[in-house]
Design a protein around this nucleic acid. Structure first.
Lengths: 207, 207
DNA sequence: ATTATCTATAGATCTATAGATAATGC
DNA sequence: ATTATCTATAGATCTATAGATAATGC
């Protein structure tokens, strides 16, 4: 592998690739060491436990996953435009990090400790932005620009639409033998469809 | 556990509960035996391998998951009404089998062999119903009753909307301490929202 | 006789650590 | 001296099977 970075970084990077691909429990520290080109004991020398190593990676990925929705867009564009842009930016992030959705689903459900720890901290750290978003949304609904919907439901819808293709991708790949270009095209189209679906679903009733 | 069924059934049932909860790799045949109240060797006596046992269960769950979408509703109701009913029936099924979505995602992604085997057979067995649905949908679009959308995208949207709450549920539960009644209510509301989101997203553009 | 169940164990993991050796920094 | 890397191994799994014993069916 890359000789410019030191072994600690090397281990971290290889662990990341493996954990993203197979999840925590299907990767052994022996696998990581083999991939990094060092001895298994060294993995423990730098990170003490497999859980430690995993958590570093997982936390980073989770933060990355949420980042776009935990920052405020202070441009003066209309609410719905800003929402669309957020959603697009989020989808673009996932295109660059296709395995993140699966990793999050997998480990957040399987490990109660990890889940409890993470969820509480995220909830507490983002209450402000959530409330801001909430009040903006309800304002738009009052104005009749958006179909009535709860903030939580909308967020769930958005996340759902954005992650689903990355969950299904392996299945599609195993049925159709896509090359890279085809996948890029498929993701581009799916991005458009995901955004469009949400946008259309938010149109108020015709009167 | 239940004394009326024989040990083979007992093992199968306990294995099912454990696999649904933790997935294939986090459950050992020892765990299953312990839960079933027998010796670990007996699990192998009846099912030979852990993989065998798992596949029986997984296949059944997957078939169950798809069933509603692989059968044709021959009532004379309009397309959109039949679609809505399918979606509601599917959601109801998931309410009764909350861990199915996670199991499917988890094992379909993690195990390439299982994936390849299952996906091919499902694809081949359901081409007819897919084509029927496809032509009905495109007909409706032509008539201007539904916003233009590809059949695959629509199916992905529906599945996505229907499964997401069952994926997120453990996260919500770990943040808020819901009792059973609250969860039932939450799922009922979410069902409504999921169906509504799809229905609204399919409305054609106003002219 | 046949089927169901158990005990015991081989052989293959896997994580984590102890303790030796090599490389580096002052 | 300190830090990085290795060898070796303890101790805890886990799956699968061989072979003994108990239960059941004729």
């Amino acid at each position: 592998m890359n000789k410019d970075i030191n072994m600690e970084q090397q281990i971290l990077q290889c662990a990341e690739e493996l954990f993203l691909e197979k999840g925590f429990s299907l990767v052994s520290t022996t696998d990581i060491a083999k991939k990094a080109g060092c001895n298994q004991a060294l993995v423990h020398y730098y990170f003490r436990t497999k859980e430690n190593l995993f958590q570093q990676i997982f936390q980073e990925k989770f933060t990355k996953f949420l980042y776009i929705f935990t920052t405020f867009d202070d441009s003066d564009e209309p609410f719905i435009t800003r929402l669309r842009k957020k959603m697009e930016a989020h989808f673009d992030l996932l295109i660059q990090n296709r395995q993140i959705p699966f990793m999050i689903i997998n480990e957040l459900i399987l490990n109660e400790n990890r889940r409890n720890k993470l969820v509480k901290s995220i909830y507490n750290n983002n209450l402000d932005i959530y409330r801001k978003f909430d009040s903006e949304l309800q304002e738009e609904i009052k104005k009749g620009n958006i179909r009535p919907i709860s903030t939580l439901d909308l967020l769930i819808n958005i996340v759902s639409m954005n992650i689903i293709i990355f969950i299904i991708l392996p299945v599609l790949e195993s049925q159709f033998n896509f090359d890279n270009e085809e996948i890029t095209e498929l993701l581009k189209q799916r991005k458009h469809e995901a955004v469009e679906t949400i946008m259309c679903s938010l149109r108020p009733e015709k009167k």
